[in-house]
């Protein structure tokens, strides 16, 4: 009984915390972008403009929930939910601290990869069902981009798996007590970060929604809370990828003095800020550059990383 209540508390807690963090990220991102662009960002509503999030939420909830007559109605409605659901599901396997985690799954990493793959459908379906040429183009771009980057996203993590000898994320964290995997798996880290950007289609890899050419791409036709779901999904994605980076390469909750959960959150925050910094500073590549970079550079590199790691482990072990 206690076990069930504990699980429920953790599940609800993770949901609440993740959703509020992603909402808070909206504020954080705008403030940080402001900071790096020598301005303020939202600073009027509440202290430090924190209530801006509330204002945004109220606004977005009160907007007309418009479904265009030319849209494929059921798919149009489901698409934004998919991204939120899959991303939230992924959080289930993340070990926030030694005993804080929704489920301790022994194929946690594979579950994460599976959920990330499912997330693609959200964008593809949203883009297709909108019945608009911009959305369709956005959806097409998203499909190709995410499929490509998913390939070596998985491959880049295999080095970590080899080193840790487990797909269980908790075990992977424990395996880093001696040395964080960011050192032996540096190439894997770089590749995973790049793939993470592409998976969350964040700037500089936001080609599916490039507003300058596709007028917001796959979510052109969305408004109100449906748009809000895509919006929240994006920030959940950032948090998820940051949390994964921390778990897989930076020792998860491991750290001296401070409690494990705090370590985990601090490390995650750093990578979230990294995401925002990338948005503040980097321009968007051309689509063909993006694709050729994936297949011609990153894929061979990740394969090489895998082979070398495997070889060393074989040789040493």
């Amino acid at each position: 009984m206690n076990e069930i209540i504990r699980s429920l508390i953790i599940v609800v807690g993770v949901l609440v915390v993740m959703l509020s963090i992603s909402a808070g990220l909206i504020w954080l991102e705008r403030r940080m972008l402001g900071l790096w662009q020598d301005r303020y960002g939202p600073n009027r509503a509440g202290p430090f403009g924190l209530m801006q999030v509330m204002a945004d939420m109220i606004k977005i909830l009160f907007k007309e929930d418009w479904i265009p007559p030319f849209a494929d109605r059921p798919v149009f409605v489901i698409a934004p939910a998919v991204v939120v659901v899959t991303t939230l599901m992924s959080f289930a396997v993340i070990p926030f601290a030694p005993s804080i985690g929704v489920v301790n799954l022994n194929i946690g990493l594979l579950f994460f990869l599976g959920m990330a793959a499912l997330g693609v459908y959200s964008v593809v379906l949203g883009g297709w069902s909108s019945g608009s040429k911009y959305s369709l183009l956005g959806g097409l771009r998203a499909t190709a981009q995410m499929l490509s980057y998913e390939v070596f996203m998985g491959l880049s993590l295999m080095g970590v798996v080899i080193l840790a000898g487990s797909f269980n994320l908790g075990d992977i964290v424990e395996a880093q007590r001696k040395m964080w995997f960011c050192i032996p798996q540096f190439i894997g880290l770089v590749i995973f970060i790049i793939a993470g950007f592409a998976e969350t289609h964040r700037l500089p890899f936001d080609l599916p929604e490039a507003e300058s050419e596709l007028v917001a791409g796959y979510h052109s036709e969305y408004s109100g809370m449906k748009f809000g779901m895509f919006f929240v999904g994006e920030y959940l994605g950032i948090t998820l990828i940051s949390a994964m980076i921390v778990t897989l390469f930076f020792g998860g909750w491991l750290g001296p003095v401070l409690p494990p959960l705090v370590w985990f959150l601090l490390k995650t925050l750093v990578f979230v800020l990294g995401f925002i910094l990338a948005r503040a500073s980097l321009p968007r590549p051309r689509y063909d550059q993006l694709m050729s970079y994936a297949w011609k550079v990153l894929l061979p590199l990740s394969l090489l990383n895998l082979v070398v790691t495997g070889g060393i482990v074989l040789a040493v072990g």
Binding site: G34, L35, W36, Q37, D38, R39, Y40, L277, A278, A280, S281, L282
Partner: peptide, 22 residues
């Protein structure tokens, strides 16, 4: 160059803000 760009932008953390609090 990408890293340098990001570093340059990061340094803006310590720049004076241009916004006038109207």
């Amino acid at each position: 160059s990408i890293l340098r760009t990001m570093w340059t932008i990061l340094l803006h953390t310590f720049h004076r803000r241009e916004t006038v609090q109207y």
